[in-house]
Design a protein around this nucleic acid. Sequence first.
DNA 1: TCTTTGTATATTGTATGCAATATACAGTAT
DNA 2: ATACTGTATATTGCATACAATATACAAAGA
Lengths: 224, 224
Amino acid sequence: MENYMQDAFLPLRDVVFKTLRQAILTGELKPGERLMEIHLANKLGVSRTPIREAIRQLELEGLVIMVPRKGAQVASITEKSLTDVLEVRLALEKLAVDLACRRINYEQKERLKETLLAFEALAETDDAGQIARADVAFHDAIFDATGNMRLGQMVNNLAEQMYRYRFEYIKDRSGHRKLVEEHRLIYDAIISGDVETATKEISVHIKNQEASIIKKIRSEEGQG
Amino acid sequence: MENYMQDAFLPLRDVVFKTLRQAILTGELKPGERLMEIHLANKLGVSRTPIREAIRQLELEGLVIMVPRKGAQVASITEKSLTDVLEVRLALEKLAVDLACRRINYEQKERLKETLLAFEALAETDDAGQIARADVAFHDAIFDATGNMRLGQMVNNLAEQMYRYRFEYIKDRSGHRKLVEEHRLIYDAIISGDVETATKEISVHIKNQEASIIKKIRSEEGQG
DNA sequence: TCTTTGTATATTGTATGCAATATACAGTAT
DNA sequence: ATACTGTATATTGCATACAATATACAAAGA
């Protein structure tokens, strides 16, 4: 936790922000858990000021919720909040592939192909972390092709809020073949400029994720 | 009344945040202008701490940009950043009217009608501030009908980034008739559940705004 | 026993002090 | 005159002290 030397050039508030975000997304900090400033400051070896500023950012990202005079706690994901987020995310992912179909250039096609092949190769392995990163890289290549950076930022922010459950649909290898197939269909559609197929396939892709995450949430509610 | 009580207990950082945002959106603080903590603290009669926290929020909202160790300055809107934002906003506004068509209930229809009539009445006047608020109320009623709060938040955040130019298409009374007509078409489509017409008309509505804002930006660039 | 109230403690909200860094400007050398 | 450099100033980054408020818990009364 105290190894922020590697990012020594960054402001402490950003280091703290990244540290806390990571802790939330990996489940080290669990939904509902309170984020107490003094405690975190001691743990990370900094003062309360950068902790406070980091918590404010996390709030804006939707990862924590703040109650005035009571402090912050890790946001808990309800099925409703998840479907709300996914409803918006689906619309933006569709927009992204639509724009990508129309605007992608040669270099971007090359890069998209690289990320696709990297993902396919990693899908044969069991390294869930690497697979997750390759998945992000593929989608980032699509956003890059849209030429609209803000769109990519917004979708990444929405996607981040369900990273806590991302491993669920990556863990079981039976799903890998399906993921690879979905990516391939999206890729082919974008390369050939087929807007209709691209938006249809990205919808399938997102909805499959939604289904597996909701399944996970329900099972957690069942036992919790 | 409730609002008054809440405002009285609102943390200073939120008061400062609202104050600075208002100053930016009204043009009192101009693009490129530096936001210096001590200066603002003296001006608003508070310490630097709530100023800092407010500036961080403004950064996350895209209204200011921060340079490490140099401070914050009011974000300047380029034509590219504006079209990027509007591209995303259009997709989300379409999603909103789509969902509203399918999900709106009786009370929400009543409220939507009220906001429509209020806007139509105010469009006859010259009070640009009131007209702007009525416009926001109408769109908020649509978001309310979607049942997806997050969608409304996100669109409002995007819309906020062009409030600086909002008065441009409200000021000239010749445009009022067009605005009223557009609202009416959107309203009718939502009430009758006509998804196709609703999304088409909201597109027209947004694109008209885009055109007038871009016109304004270009004229500013010309003289500035 | 249950409720209420008072008090001690914990925690956040705000102000301020100090250190690190950037900026501005004068003075000097070329 | 111009470029460079050193110093003073301005400004942010971080830490800490103090104030305001919420929380927990115990004691007292119904």
